[in-house]
Design a protein around this nucleic acid. Structure first.
Lengths: 346, 346
DNA sequence: CTGAAAGCGCTTACAG
DNA sequence: CTGAAAGCGCTTACAG
């Protein structure tokens, strides 16, 4: 149907080998034949078939990216970073939405393998043993973003979650807060759960503040569940003056709940989030948060992966810098807890 | 490197033709050889090569999706819908981020063509003449989401923007508002700009409310620019009591600006958005908005596209239903404009 | 029920 | 500088 290399060869009166040479900018043809070939290509509107090319080169110039939920601001910022670098370097990207479902993940890995992707980016999920095994069998390079693993030679790109959480809480402490709650993500999540909990506790401990387990509430990083967790937290510990939320969505949920109960942010309750999604700028008031450079992380992952594909060499992991973006949800605690006036429960 | 069909043929002591038959569930082999083949596959860990398959079948089982910005909640919800259906039906999806850049779009189309995608979903952008030409040359089916075109036989899936805008404004009118501003998207956007402006004007007109051009501000659908547009609008027309924003991001910007100037939403200013992104639930107060079922639209586009790929038949366009999701940013206007009290300018 | 052979659209030694 | 031929890993008539 579509014209092939044969058609242009015929049209230009040369062999397909020659057409292939000029197409690939190899050497071994005169300027004249080059011109002839290009003219033929032009005339019949020829486009090379990357599939045929891929079969013989054993390179498809495409990479796969796996996310637990593509439709989150979080994933899509990473994806954007991945995609930009990939496209600029001649790679296409296939997206896979695993829905945090183990079955789907394995099935995807299968598909990606059959489709012969040159490499893979694995994001935001724990690299389970079975995934690791499959990946090793695939014999293609891969890199982890916003997650890590205990396996050697598996490069990852992430923020130091422990330290970021520590810094967030210390930031709150510096503003005079001592009754600081934690709106945690999934309790047993070894990547984004536990390290942030530990960072929270360590900061408290280092500043001589006792840990109060009733100040810790567990959500799932997302809005709805966190909304409820926040309501419970508030009824259980109405005396808190600040909250560290382990994701921006959770922080926004906290703001929403506060608004619902007439608690003023930041006057009566300070809130600091985690991620710095676009969301954080849009909240009312704008959210103070720990920034993870998601776009950059995706971009870097893409860079490393493509470098590995091209050179075959291993790449090192990378802890990227987080930072605190100061907006308007944190303020110094006042001498008396203003909220007591409005909230007789405390 | 990886085992091929030849390896399993050798292992199972049959021809590659036979292996291919059992692999594809064709007929013409005994249960015995079937078992032998499967055993061999198992033993050597064979995985079919979809690239080789694609070359001969002229089907790659992959579709492309083009977005102006992948990293928006808007695009990613559509993407999620597209991806879910595609994966469940054996198709992979390649994402392309055009950054609203004509050059990139054309380049992508090229890439997608070379990679032999079976079909294409084109989202949120005007289908320019040159894109249309390229698409026609590619001879693959494609469908438009959240945009439309004047070309016949190019199926699109979208909401009726004019009607949706009309309904939003009428909703405001029903609550007693007459001084209704429009925070419009890009002025000359023929898809999401003009029709919504027209819907706004028509609703006003049908209710005998004169159109006041100073009540119309232009943003670009996104937060930052809209924030400024809202500030200008407010200083130019401080007497407005309600705003119809042509996107949720714009509505959120309006809420933010209102908060900045101490204008209470909805007490002093009602706001209705457009899209119903997850964002809308998270705002404070939760945003009343016109819902476009983005996930469903993506899913439907995927369905239609894959159906076209499989059957070769044309599909019809589809205007999906919008609806107004009532949350907390609109309320009936009070007898006297409360805001006058606080804002001596009016 | 099964296999030998041609062919998908390319690239790449090899020979001239 | 150029072409004939083999081959990438499959599928699919065709013949038996």
């Amino acid at each position: 149907m579509n014209p092939t290399i044969k058609d242009v060869a015929k049209k230009a009166n040369v062999s397909i080998a020659t057409v292939s040479r000029v197409l690939n900018n190899l050497q071994g043809y005169s300027e004249q034949t080059k011109a002839k070939v290009y003219r033929a290509i032009e005339e019949i509107g020829y486009q090379p078939n990357a599939i045929a090319r891929g079969l013989i080169n054993k390179k498809t110039q495409t990479i796969g990216v796996m996310f637990p939920t593509v439709s989150s601001l979080f994933s899509s910022e990473i994806l954007h970073g991945v995609e930009d670098f990939a496209q600029d370097n001649g790679y296409s990207v296939m997206v896979c939405n695993t829905d945090s479902d183990g079955k789907r993940t394995l099935k995807y890995l299968q598909v990606l393998r059959e489709k012969q992707v040159d490499g893979l980016i694995f994001s935001s999920e724990v690299l389970k043993e079975e995934y690791y095994q499959t990946l090793q069998q695939m014999r293609i390079p891969y890199v982890l973003v916003s997650t890590e693993s205990g396996y050697d030679h598996v490069p990852y790109i992430k923020v130091n979650d422990f330290q970021a959480a520590y810094d967030a809480v210390e930031y709150l402490i510096r503003f005079g807060h001592r009754k600081i709650a934690l709106l945690s993500g999934t309790k047993h999540d070894t990547i984004a759960g536990i390290p942030r909990i530990e960072g929270y506790k360590k900061a408290l401990e280092n500043h001589g503040i006792p840990i109060n387990e009733s100040y810790i509430a567990y959500g799932d990083f997302l809005f709805d569940v966190s909304y409820k967790a926040m309501e419970e937290l508030l009824s259980r510990a109405p005396d808190i003056t600040a909250i560290f939320a382990a994701s921006d969505e959770m922080a926004i949920a906290a703001i929403s709940v506060a608004a619902k109960y007439g608690i003023k942010v930041p006057d009566e309750l300070s809130i600091i989030g985690y991620d710095d999604l676009k969301l954080a700028q849009m909240s009312v008031p704008p959210l103070t948060t720990v920034r993870q450079p998601l776009y950059d992380m995706g971009n870097l992952a893409s860079q490393k992966l493509i470098h590995m594909i091209k050179t075959g060499k291993a790449e090192s992991s990378c802890i990227v810098a987080h930072s605190i973006v100061e907006r308007q949800t944190v303020r110094a605690i006042s001498s008396h807890d203003k909220r007591d006036i409005h909230n007789p429960k405390t």
